[in-house]
Amino acid sequence: MHDPTRAVDPGPARPDTSDWTWVLVRPCPQCGYDSGHVLPIGVPQIVRDAATRYAAVLGRMDVAVRPGEGVWSPLEYACHVRDVCDVMRGRLERILAGDGTTPVELDNWDQDATAVEKQYWRADPGQVAVELQDAFEAAAAAFATPHRAQWSWSAVRSDGAMFTVETLAKYFVHDLVHHLWDVQG
């Protein structure tokens, strides 16, 4: 069993510098995700289903074991998706707080810096399970709120990538699905 008080820093994971926005126009060859099959109205249920699968992953005896050098453990991935839920919910709320006529600017989020700052490798799986459930439920509830016209409201990420509420939802779902594939969940 993982004892966070005895956890040794495994060093940083390999940074992910990919621009994953391409998953909005073609299927992911690794995890099989196809955004063309995701309806915005189904996003809350997809998020809730993913929460259940991540909870099961957090119950594994080897949850804190990295499968290879520079690759996050299932525990670290669970911490990451917990934070992804919060970031994406926050981005959605920013867009919906606008008037829909001007693209909202989205702040940058450095996921690798967050992992180091929060010491994902040292997290308590039981605590992460609680936080993950709360984050997933808050994200699911938020993505259930857009009205029909709001799905086309837009935003621009700090790197220039453009999103609508709909594409943000699909991009978010890929993150959850892909990391389940990463942890074989």
Rank of each mutant, 00 (worst) to 15 (best):
A13R: 10
V104P: 11
D112K: 02
W181F: 13
A141L: 13
E69H: 12
P12H: 09
V47H: 11
G126Y: 06
V156P: 05
A50F: 02
T52V: 15
P4Y: 02
P44I: 06
V57C: 03
K170F: 06
D112W: 05
D49F: 13
A139M: 10
R94M: 12
D49Q: 14
V156C: 06
T164F: 11
E69A: 15
T145L: 13
V38L: 14
D124T: 02
D19R: 08
E93T: 14
S152Y: 07
C85S: 12
R26D: 03
E117K: 10
Y120A: 06
A135S: 13
L58W: 07
V38E: 07
A149M: 11
W153T: 04
T167L: 10
M61E: 15
A50P: 11
A78P: 06
G100H: 08
D49A: 15
P10C: 07
E76C: 06
Q127D: 15
Y171R: 07
P44G: 05
A56R: 09
C31A: 05
A129K: 10
A149L: 12
M162K: 15
G100W: 00
L132S: 07
L176Q: 06
A97H: 11
M88Y: 15
N108C: 09
A123G: 09
T5I: 01
N108I: 11
P40Q: 02
V38P: 00
L168M: 11
T167E: 09
V173Y: 09
R82P: 04
P40F: 04
G59Y: 05
T21V: 11
G126H: 05
P15F: 03
R157N: 06
P125W: 07
L168E: 08
V177Q: 12
T167K: 08
